[in-house]
């Protein structure tokens, strides 16, 4: 399953635009391509080693991707996947003490529905009394994770098309 491409953030878009504006970059680019081409012709082996597909022998680049807690992109808190809105901090501190944020983000319900889940967790799963945070949390959930009408059967979606040979 391929992971979805991340959309460009505002900052990245700005950078792209600035580059496009500076059209003279093109001049350097053409020059670079010419040099590469020449190099390729003159010393193909070295060129391949330098510019070719290095992934064959390269070990996988191990990335210890400890995601920063401050990272927010397009209104999503990257580390948890939660929507950043009023009540986010209370939800993070309360709900994620026991379970994954995915249990929030994959579910949809109205205010009453979310309240039922909280009551169920309080009755059976050792969730504490949320006090004045309860309303804040419920507002957040009902607004950001509200149900959508799917009908009796939704169209197939997220299809990745590929050619099937005989």
């Amino acid at each position: 399953m391929s992971k979805e491409e991340k959309e460009l953030s505002k900052d990245e878009l700005d950078i792209v635009q600035r580059i496009v504006q500076r059209m003279n970059v093109l001049v350097y680019a053409s020059f670079f391509i010419a040099v590469v081409a020449l190099f390729n012709i003159m010393a193909p082996d070295t060129a391949e080693r330098w510019l070719g597909e290095t992934e064959k022998e390269a070990l996988p680049e191990a990335v210890v991707d400890t995601i920063s807690d401050d990272l927010i992109e397009n209104g999503i808190h990257i580390k948890t996947g939660l929507i950043v809105d009023d009540g986010f901090n209370q939800v993070k501190a309360t709900c994620l003490a026991c379970h994954s944020a995915k249990l929030v983000t994959q579910n949809r319900a109205d205010r009453e529905g979310w309240k039922k889940m909280i009551r169920w967790m309080q009755e059976t799963q050792n969730l504490w009394d949320l006090g004045q945070n309860e309303d804040i949390i419920l507002d957040y959930l009902a607004k950001n994770y509200a149900p959508e009408d799917k009908g009796r059967r939704a169209p197939l979606k997220n299809i990745e098309w590929y050619t099937l040979e005989d």
């Binding site: 579910n107 319900a109 529905g113 039922k116 889940m117 149900p147 009408d149 799917k150």
Partner: peptide, 11 residues
């Protein structure tokens, strides 16, 4: 995941 209205739990 197909139920409407949605049911809580793993989808």
């Amino acid at each position: 995941s197909e139920f409407n209205p949605p049911a809580k739990g793993n989808q």
